[in-house]
């Protein structure tokens, strides 16, 4: 469904991604692992049109995404939950959610909003509260709900567990597993390699802007290099 084909992109004079090729089928959860600076976030930003594809192609279904604006990419059915959540602190929970479905007609916005409140009851309780007053875990739920508002076929998640208590991380990953069942495909970028490999179908390891390793999550969990570098090592 999603194909990132030999993509080069970056900032200013520097190419961060060097001929990265990644694919994702409908209903899959793909994890992209790698150290800081390996290009994980850049990969997501390139797919969503926040930064330009310099070489190669990004296609979604039979649509070429190269050169589309972030707004147009959302319209194609891809949403992006950014690292650090980026909740609008002074807007209410409801305003945060509605803005994520900016392009939708009013009636559709309303039904998506109800669906989100049904899925995340904590957000329904806090709908009139300013986003900045939520706890970290609640903000992550709001960020996930914002990602789901436009009813995407594919969700890009950047470090959804970052800075959260272990118990909340569990809730986040349970939510992601639940999303898979509802038919949303997920491209997950994570530092938490163990959790990600448990959840994902397949995974890619990025090292300095290139795919160093790819395979099923099961294969990669057993790989010695992966164990050493990302799973805390084994003696």
């Amino acid at each position: 469904m999603l194909r990132v084909d030999q993509v080069v992109s970056g900032y200013g004079a520097i190419d961060v991604l060097n001929h990265v090729t990644i694919s994702l089928d409908k209903g899959e959860i793909i994890a992209v692992l790698g150290a800081n600076g390996a290009g994980k976030t850049t990969l997501l930003r390139t797919i969503t049109g926040l930064i330009r594809v310099r070489k190669g192609a990004v296609t979604f279904g039979d649509k070429v995404l190269n050169g589309l604006s972030p707004a147009e990419v959302v319209k194609c059915g891809i949403s992006h939950v950014p690292e650090g959540r980026h909740i609008f602190p002074d807007l209410t929970v409801e305003e945060n959610l509605l803005l994520a479905a900016y392009i939708m007609p009013r009636s559709q916005q309303k039904s998506r909003l109800d669906a989100m409140y049904a899925m995340f009851s904590i957000l329904a309780d806090r709908r009139k509260q300013a986003g900045g007053t939520l706890s970290g875990g609640e903000q992550q739920m709001l960020a996930l709900a914002r990602g789901l508002m436009p009813n995407p076929r594919l969700m890009l998640l950047d470090e959804p567990s970052l800075g959260l208590a272990p118990k909340i991380i569990g809730t986040v990953f349970d939510t992601l597993a639940h999303l898979r069942e509802s038919g949303v495909s997920i491209l997950l970028v994570e530092q938490n390699a163990k959790r990600s490999l448990e959840l994902a179908d397949r995974a890619y390891i990025l090292v300095t802007g290139q795919v160093a390793l790819e395979g099923t999550a099961h294969e990669l969990s057993g790989n010695e290099m992966v164990k050493q570098l990302y799973l805390g090592g084994t003696r």
Binding site: V73, S79, A100
Partner: peptide, 9 residues
């Protein structure tokens, strides 16, 4: 940044 990520034109 968040506004652009969410697809606000």
């Amino acid at each position: 940044y968040a506004a652009r990520v969410l697809g606000i034109p």
